[in-house]
């Protein structure tokens, strides 16, 4: 494309777009260190808002709940999603129906899946709480893990599986000694992606967590805080949440050089 591009114009576009993308979140990060906490006046550098977070019992309990949901749903989704990916890729015939089912959790609007699960759980008279959030998060998490692992499998040299069989290995031995180790970076990348998605997920958690205060997750807590009165603490909390996602995603990226997650 370089031959068509005016270098100055391209530079201007990049500068403008990156400013648009990064100024708002940078402001947030900067404010989290503003002693006075107000967006319009800088009153000095301070980490006091981070300290306040630690003493906010609601936030700490929400953070703990989020961690539980994210860890459990990630573990489940990683196992289910990886097996699914391997199964789909070694199948010779590609079914359109199968593809749709696997693709659906990634494109279905959150609100629709959220109300569907809410109706489902209430019609079955299931008491809702963190466990129903976990069950629900696994749905989209396994789809994302599956897509990351499949992307890797596309460049996977299947002849090494045959080579392993040819050298005398049974199918389980081949799976454990050849397929799994080769796929491990992609599986971990998928798991990190799932973890990030789960930590950040709001709508489905909001609908499937039930009414109890003890099943509030961090995004639910943030939503409530934004909606009912902004306190300066939220800048600090937002910065931490962003940092967690960015670190997990950067790690995922490093492990999975096959492509960007979601690509």
């Amino acid at each position: 494309m370089a031959s068509l591009a005016n270098p100055r114009l391209m530079l201007a576009i990049l500068a403008a777009v990156f400013a648009f993308l990064y100024v708002p979140i940078s402001v947030l990060v900067a404010l989290s260190f503003n002693d006075g906490g107000l967006p319009t006046a800088w009153t000095g550098f301070s980490t006091r808002w981070y300290g306040e977070l630690l003493h906010n019992r609601d936030i700490m309990s929400a953070a703990f709940n989020t961690l539980v949901v994210a860890v459990v749903s990630t573990v489940l989704a990683t196992i289910l999603g990886s097996l699914l990916a391997i199964g789909v890729e070694i199948r010779r015939r590609k079914g359109r129906f199968l593809e749709t089912i696997i693709f659906a959790p990634m494109i279905i609007p959150d609100i629709v899946l959220a109300i569907a699960l809410l109706s489902f759980f209430s019609l079955l008279n299931v008491t809702m709480g963190l466990h129903t959030v976990i069950l629900s998060h696994v749905v989209f998490n396994l789809a994302f893990v599956c897509s990351v692992v499949r992307a890797r499998l596309k460049t996977f040299d299947w002849s090494i599986v045959e080579a392993s069989t040819d050298l005398g290995a049974s199918t389980p031995v081949t799976l454990v000694r050849i397929v799994l180790p080769v796929m491990l970076p992609a599986v971990i990348a998928g798991a990190l992606l799932a973890f990030t998605l789960s930590v950040d997920e709001f709508i489905i958690a909001f609908f499937t967590a039930g009414a109890g205060r003890d099943s509030i997750t961090l995004p639910m807590q943030i939503f409530a805080m934004i909606r009912f009165g902004v306190t300066p603490e939220i800048n600090a909390l937002a910065t931490i949440v962003m940092a967690v996602s960015v670190i997990a995603l950067t790690l995922s990226q490093r492990l999975n050089r096959g492509g960007l997650p979601g690509q």
Binding site: D157, S159, I160, E162, A163, S164, T165, D166, L167, G168, A169, S170, I178, P181, V182
Partner: peptide, 19 residues
């Protein structure tokens, strides 16, 4: 089955285990 035959194959891609 291939894993029970006294026959071995050298693959065109060599199929070496990368890990």
């Amino acid at each position: 089955p291939p894993n029970r035959r006294p026959v071995n194959l050298m693959f065109q891609s060599y199929a070496l285990f990368p890990h």
